[in-house]
Measured scan of single mutants.
Amino acid sequence: GSLMYASIFGNVSAIIQRLYSGTARYHTQMLRVREFIRFHQIPNPLRQRLEEYFQHAWSYTNGIDMNAVLKGFPECLQADICLHLNRSLLQHCKPFRGATKGCLRALAMKFKTTHAPPGDTLVHAGDLLTALYFISRGSIEILRGDVVVAILGKNDIFGEPLNLYARPGKSNGDVRALTYCDLHKIHRDDLLEVLDMYPEFSDHFWSSLEITFNLRDTNMIPGSPGSTELEGGFSRQRKRKLSFRRRTDKDTEQPGEVSALGPGRAGAGPSSRGRPGGPWGESPSSGPSSPESSEDEGPGRSSSPLRLVPFSSPRPPGEPPGGEPLMEDCEKSSDTCNPLSGAFSGVSNIFSFWGDSRGRQYQELPRCPAPTPSLLNIPLSSPGRRPRGDVESRLDALQRQLNRLETRLSADMATVLQLLQRQMTLVPPAYSAVTTPGPGPTSTSPLLPVSPLPTLTLDSLSQVSQFMACEELPPGAPELPQEGPTRRLSLPGQLGALTSQPLHRHGSDPGS
Rank of each mutant, 00 (worst) to 15 (best):
L128E: 10
T130S: 07
L132W: 01
R137D: 13
R137M: 04
R144N: 15
R144V: 06
G145R: 09
L152V: 02
G153A: 08
D156Q: 05
F158N: 01
F158S: 02
G159R: 02
L162K: 03
Y165P: 04
A166S: 10
S171R: 01
N172A: 11
G173S: 12
V175N: 03
T179Y: 01
Y180S: 04
D182P: 01
H184M: 05
H187D: 11
R188P: 03
L191I: 07
E193N: 04
E193C: 09
L195D: 01
M197N: 06
P199F: 01
F201V: 06
F205T: 02
E210P: 04
F213W: 08
F213Q: 03
N219Y: 13
P222E: 09
G226L: 13
S227A: 12
G232F: 10
G233S: 09
S235F: 12
K241N: 07
R246Y: 09
D249W: 05
T252K: 11
T252E: 11
Q254D: 10
G256Q: 06
A260K: 09
P263L: 10
P263K: 14
A266R: 08
G269C: 13
P270Y: 07
S271V: 13
S272R: 08
R273K: 08
S283T: 15
G287C: 12
S290T: 15
E295T: 15
E295Y: 03
G298S: 13
G298E: 07
G298L: 05
S303N: 03
S304K: 12
R307K: 12
L308Q: 12
R315S: 09
E319I: 13
E319Y: 12
L326S: 11
M327W: 03
K332W: 13
K332T: 07
D335W: 03
C337R: 08
P339M: 10
L340D: 05
L340T: 15
S341R: 10
S341L: 05
F351M: 07
F353V: 07
F353L: 09
G355K: 15
S357I: 05
Q361M: 06
Q363R: 10
Q363W: 06
C368D: 12
P369E: 08
P369Q: 10
P371H: 09
P371G: 10
S374Y: 10
N377H: 14
P379M: 06
S382R: 06
P383G: 04
P383K: 15
R386P: 08
D396P: 07
Q399D: 13
R404M: 03
M413E: 01
V416K: 03
Q421L: 04
P428G: 08
P429Q: 06
T436C: 13
P437N: 13
P437T: 10
G438C: 09
P446W: 04
L448D: 12
L453K: 06
P454Y: 05
L456K: 08
T457H: 07
L458E: 13
D459M: 12
D459P: 07
V464E: 12
S465A: 11
Q466T: 11
M468W: 15
C470W: 01
E471C: 12
E472K: 05
G476T: 08
P492I: 06
L498I: 10
T499K: 06
L503Y: 08
H504N: 12
R505H: 09
H506I: 11
D509N: 13
G511H: 12
